[in-house]
Every structure is written in C-alpha cells, then in structure tokens.
Nucleic acid binder design. Structure first.
Lengths: 207, 207
DNA sequence: GTCTATAGCTAGATAGAC
DNA sequence: GTCTATCTAGCTATAGAC
C-alpha cells in the first residue's frame, strides 16, 4: 500500500479544492502542485480522478458519522434527542470549512457521473445511514405526539437547508451575516436560531 | 445584433447544462451540438463562455424578479406580506427545473472567477435587489412585533435553504420525498409545510 | 450568421527509467 | 514511490472563406 502520509496529504488538498470548485473545476495538476508531487504520482495513490473524489467524500461522511454517533443514544424525549442530534451535526459541519460544501455538492452533483458506477465505494451507503438516522428522530417525534404532524421528508429538507446549506454558503453567507460563518459564536448562534425556530416558529401568536 | 431566436436557443441550452453540471462541467462543444450549430458560431453570439454563463444567470434572476414583483405591494400585515412573497418566490423556483439549481450555484460558485471581473453584467446587482427585498420584509415584521426577535440574516439563510436548496436538490430530494419535486401538488405542499413551520414551529407546546 | 481549420493549451491517464 | 516523457482527447477562442 501507499505511504499513508502522502495519501492523506492528497486527500487534504483534494478536499479543499473539490469543496471550492467542484469535481469538474479541479485538475489533477493543481492537486499535485499543492501536494508537492508530480502529476503522475497521484495516479499511484488513486487510480483516477473519480476515485480521489469519492475517497474525499467518503472521508468527510465518515467524519460526520463519528461526530453524530454519540448523539444517537437512546435517552431523552424526542425534543431533546433532535436538539442533541442537530447540535452534533452542526458541530460536524463547522469542524472544517470544507465539510458542508462537499456534502452539498455530493448531494446534488452526483446526478452526473451516475450513481452506482463505482460500487466499491461506500459514499452512497454512508449518506443513507446519516439520513435515515435523522429521519427516524423526526418520525419518532411525530408518532409520539411531541412534534406537529409534519411531513418527515419535508422537515428533513428544511433541516438540511438550515444546516448544510447555511455552512456551505461561504462568502455569500458571510456577506449576509456581516461576519464569519465558522467562529465559535456564529456556530452557537446558528444552533440557537434554528432551535428557536423549531420551538416557536416565526410568528408571534395571539395570546 | 444577432438573431434573437438563436440567441435564446443558446441561452435555453446553456441554462439546462449549467444547471446540471455547473460552469466548469459544461463545454461549448456540447452546447453547440444541442443547439445544432458549429461550436464557433456560439462565439458570434457570446464573446466567451463566461459571458454566456452570466447571461444565463442574469435571465434567471430577471425571471425571478418579474415573478416576485407583484407580491411586493405594500398591503397587509407583515405575516401576510411574507406569506405572499414566499408563495411568489417558490412559484418562481418551480417554474423551471433549472432555476433553483442555477441560483444555488450562482450563490456559492462565484467565489471562483472573482466577482466584479465582469462589471458589465448585472448579476450581482439583481441578486442584491432580490435579497434586500426579502430581508426588508423580515426586518419590518420584527420591528412591528409581528415576528419573534429573530436575526434577519439567519432567517434569510433558513428561508433560502428551505426554498432554493429544496428545489435545487433534484434527484436527491425526489428520493427523499418519494415523488417529483415540481408537480403542482408537491409545490403546494412545500408552501404549506414551510408556512406551517413559520407559524407554529415544530414542537407541540404544552398548553 | 454559419462554416472549416487551426492555434495554443490543458485535461486525465499510461509507460518505463530510476 | 517519484520522476520525465508522451499519448489522446478535450478545451476556449480566433481567422478567414462563404
């Protein structure tokens, strides 16, 4: 097998570049230059550009799974459990500035090189696990009567937008907020705003 | 000037392809083939690939502005006005399957070919108008006491996620929902789910 | 306004020396 | 495991005939 240190360096560089410009926007030459290798040497570590991209995606998903796993323990009412899960998920997204963007790209960029063409990777599977964990939390809350009778898939989409999109929005989001997206304060604020919306909605109710 | 019909055909094709694979993922050759022209002929209508991309983006933003303009009239309380605006905005996103995806790409793909390099286009300006209209609706509602004391930028991010991301999510979103994203029923359902969240939150309150 | 031809470059990927 | 050299194919863009 290849030198693990070199392999990890390539993954690190690929992660930054793919997050910034997507699969098609990145060339192996640029990756090689940043790692400090000749372009050909990359193909010793990864058979093709697609394999490198999938390896980057899979490492990101694995990191997310690690972070949210402790939040999945079976204690507390549905509200506490969803709160805990969202906190952990947001922490995972905020850990590296590349995470949310790669996740968002992975979600809507794989319509291209058709899913299932590279079955040796577990990208699809890992994504499904993460999604079904979240979905079960919502369904359990609805069934228990702790949540309104929302459509779980629609609530999933809303939560993905409120978390993944938010932390993927980069310069645009920072322009809107007028401050960094990933500072400890900004991350804490995002958690609070999201949870307040879930608790109270936006409207002020007539008393 | 060029034949407007041909120009529009090029924009139509570019819109579909750029929405699907982004700026870097599309070649002028593929655009030309789908239009039924030689590749060189494209450069008679658009000076460069970037100019074509910006023209596509600008047309999309203009279409959105047209759709939401009637919803901006100064009648009703803040709740009614935001409801009306969100309905119109969602209708604009649902009008073409390409709209939301191009908008989302435009939001976080212009970190690359740096903004302001092509000042003759109004993409940036149109986006700012759309955003500041929405933001004013939120700020007015907070000031009037009709909305909770949310952070308007955070609420903007949540609403962008709930609308633009949702309709941009393509096959992924359809897999999650188990049905098309853009059918009349699905669009109406999305409006209802979003407005119910703004009205009531997710939690069922203790009475 | 569309075409052919081509310039000039970069892409992903391979072969084989060291 | 990294290198140089090279292959084939693609790219954006231009020149100039029709």
């Amino acid at each position: 097998m290849a030198d693990p240190n070199t392999r990890d360096k390539i993954l690190d560089v690929g992660e930054v570049l793919f997050a910034r410009r997507g699969f098609a926007g990145v060339g192996m030459r640029e990756v090689a230059d940043r790692v400090g290798l000749g372009k050909s040497s990359l193909f010793h570590h990864f058979r093709s550009k697609v394999q490198l991209y999938l390896a980057v995606l899979e490492r990101v998903l694995a990191r997310i799974q690690e972070r949210v796993a402790p939040a999945l323990k079976d204690t507390g009412d549905p509200c506490e459990r969803l709160d805990r899960y969202l906190d952990a998920f947001i922490d995972a997204l905020a850990e590296h500035p590349t995470t949310a963007r790669l996740l968002l790209r992975g979600i809507f960029e794989d319509d291209d090189f058709d899913a299932g063409t590279f079955p040796e990777h577990h990208v699809e599977h890992r994504l499904e696990v993460i999604l079904s964990d979240a979905r079960r939390l919502i369904e359990a809350g609805v069934e228990a009567g702790a949540f309104r009778d929302v459509s779980p898939p629609h609530m999933m989409q809303t939560l993905i937008g409120a978390t993944v999109y938010h932390f993927a929005s980069g310069e645009f989001g920072e322009g809107l907020l007028g401050r960094p997206l990933l500072s400890a304060e900004a991350v804490a604020r995002r958690k609070d705003e999201l949870k307040a919306l879930l608790h109270n909605g936006l409207w002020v109710k007539a008393q």
